[in-house]
Design a protein around this nucleic acid. Structure first.
Length: 117
DNA sequence: ATTCTGACGTGGG
DNA sequence: CCCCACGCCAGAA
């Protein structure tokens, strides 16, 4: 799934979902990290856009994707705004005022953990 | 076609 | 550390 980035990947969404699915429990990553891993570091916003479409997909832990500051910017896009924080806390992540605590520790970088393509 | 907006990121002040 | 302006790409009006 990494090599089809070269061609016009209309499955950019699918790639994002793949990466998001790989995020371990209790860890989080950022939109930019995913975009970077997919080779579209300028498309961090598109990752967010892909998340928007993740509504249809069942197993997409979109709650594990936050912005680079570790803030739950997208919580308002969930069915229930507090659902995102609740799920994270359920996985052992501490969230205070939409800000993930120990963000650097729970941060999961796909480009590092999975290796750069 | 044009304009605006956004679940973002970076750089400068 | 915070705030601001700009860049980026895709979609909606």
């Amino acid at each position: 799934m990494q090599q089809n980035l070269n061609a016009k990947n209309k499955d950019f969404f699918a790639d994002v979902y793949e990466v998001v699915k790989m995020i371990p429990v209790g860890r989080v990553t950022s939109y930019g990290a995913i975009a970077n891993y997919l080779g579209a570091k300028q498309g961090a916003r598109m990752v967010g856009w892909a998340m928007n479409a993740s509504h249809s997909m069942p197993d997409i832990p979109a709650h594990r994707v936050v912005n680079r500051k570790g803030i739950l910017t997208g919580k308002h896009h969930f069915e229930e705004p507090n659902q995102m924080q609740r799920q994270l806390e359920n996985e052992g992540i501490v969230v205070i005022e939409n800000q993930i605590q120990n963000f650097e520790k729970v941060y999961w970088n796909p480009a590092v953990e999975l290796g750069l393509p």
